[in-house]
Nucleic acid binder design. Structure first.
Lengths: 192, 192
DNA sequence: CGATTCTTTGAAAACAGTCAATCTGTGTGG
DNA sequence: CCACACAGATTGACTGTTTTCAAAGAATCG
C-alpha cells in the first residue's frame, strides 16, 4: 500500500530511497470498508491522511440528520480535518468511505518532523497547501456566482472521476442544492 | 508604514532586528487612494501583499459588468491573487481600495527567499496558509448550508470590523445574494 | 430474492432575483 | 452656502428558481 504513496511522491519530487524509507517508517496504512469511519464527529483528528485507493467523503451532519459534504477525497489526494488537528478540539466533521479505501496515516508530529527533515518534502507540502487554497477560492467563486445547473456542469467537468462514482444526492449535497433540484436540472439539460 | 508590518510580525513570531531589517529591505510600501487598483484583471500578479491600513476588495467582474467579491482584506491581512502568481498567467481578478490604503508588497521571489532564509518566518507562513484553508472550508460550509439571512448574520458576527465599513451591496456580493434580497432580509430581521 | 438505497416526478410553498422607482445622505463645484 | 450629482438603501410588483413533502419507480447490495 505504501508503494502507491511512494509512487505519488516520486512523480512529484526527487526523493532518495533513504528518505522514502524514512517516510515509510512513520506511515501507518489502514484499510476501510464501505461506510467505515476514518474520523467520527467528536473525536480529535491527529493525522495527515493520504488516500492510496478508494474514495472518502468529509461531511457535516446537521441537527436534522442531513449530511453536508464539504469535500471528496479520491485516490492520490489528502484528507483530514485540519481544524481539529490545529486546535486540538473534537471535530465537527465525519469522514467515511464511499468505496473500499486504503489510506496512509501520518501522525501530525511525525508529519511536521518529516517536513523539517526533508526539505523537498517541505516544499512539496507548501506547494500543495497553496494549490488547495487556489482550488478553494475557485470553488467559492463558482458557489456565489452560478446557478444550480452551472454548478453541476462545473462539477462534472472538474471531477469526472468522482462524478460517475458517487450517487447523485451526494453531488447535490456537495453543491449545496437538493437532490430533487439536481435531478430535474439534469433531465432538462438532456432535453436541449 | 513598515512599522505596522514589523509590529504585526513581532506579535506573532520571535524576529530579530536583523531579520526584521532584512525583510524591510525586500519590502515595497505603496499607498492607494479610494478606488485605485492594486491589481487589474489582465495583469500578472507577482507579490505577496500585506495591508497595513485601509481596506481592499478582491473581485471578479463578469460579462454583465457585475462585481463578485471573493474576499475583503482589511489591515493586518494578506491579499493577492495566488492563482496568477503560481501560474504566471494574467489575473481574472481585480483588487482595489475601498478606503485609503497602505500596503507592503514583497516580490514572489523575495518572499520565497525570505522563507528559506528565516525559518520562523517560514513556519509562520505555513501556519497562515493552514489557517486560511480552515477559514475557507468554514466559508464553503456556510455557503452550501445556510439561507441568505443566516449567511448575513454569520458575516456580521465573523467580520464586525468589516461589516460596518463597507456598503451593503458589497456584503451582498460577497455572500452571493442580491443587494435587494439582503436589504429585505435585514428589515424583516428587525421586525422580529 | 428482499431490503435498502437511489432517482425521478408532481404539486404547493418558500425563497431569491430582476427591473424600475423612490428615498436618503454625502460631498463637490459653482 | 446652496444646488446638484451621485452612490447607496429601500420598496413594490413580478418572475423565476429552488425547496419541501410525499409517493412511486429503478437499481443495487448482501
Amino acid at each position: 500500500m505504501f508503494d502507491d504513496f511512494k509512487k505519488y511522491l516520486q512523480e512529484r519530487i526527487a526523493l532518495s530511497d533513504d528518505d522514502s524509507d524514512f517516510i515509510a517508517r512513520h506511515s501507518q496504512p489502514k484499510k476501510l470498508r464501505r461506510k467505515q469511519y476514518l474520523l467520527q464527529a467528536g473525536d480529535v483528528w491527529k493525522y495527515d491522511a493520504f488516500v492510496c485507493r478508494g474514495l472518502l467523503k468529509l461531511y457535516f451532519e446537521d441537527e436534522k440528520g442531513q449530511e453536508h459534504i464539504l469535500r471528496f477525497a479520491p485516490e492520490n489526494n489528502w484528507t483530514g480535518d485540519r481544524e481539529s488537528m490545529e486546535t486540538g478540539l473534537p471535530s465537527k466533521y465525519n469522514i467515511d468511505a464511499i468505496e473500499e479505501t486504503e489510506v496512509i496515516l501520518i501522525l501530525k508530529e511525525d508529519f511536521e518532523m518529516l517536513r523539517k527533515t526533508i526539505s523537498v518534502f517541505n516544499d512539496f507540502v507548501s506547494d500543495t497547501l497553496k494549490k488547495n487554497l487556489i482550488a478553494h477560492q475557485e470553488r467559492i467563486y463558482v458557489n456565489i456566482t452560478n446557478t444550480a445547473e452551472e454548478k453541476y456542469r462545473n462539477f462534472i467537468k472538474q471531477f469526472p472521476q468522482i462524478a460517475n462514482r458517487v450517487p447523485l444526492h451526494m453531488i447535490a449535497s456537495y453543491l449545496g442544492i437538493s437532490a430533487e433540484t439536481l435531478s430535474r436540472t439534469r433531465s432538462q439539460k438532456g432535453k436541449k
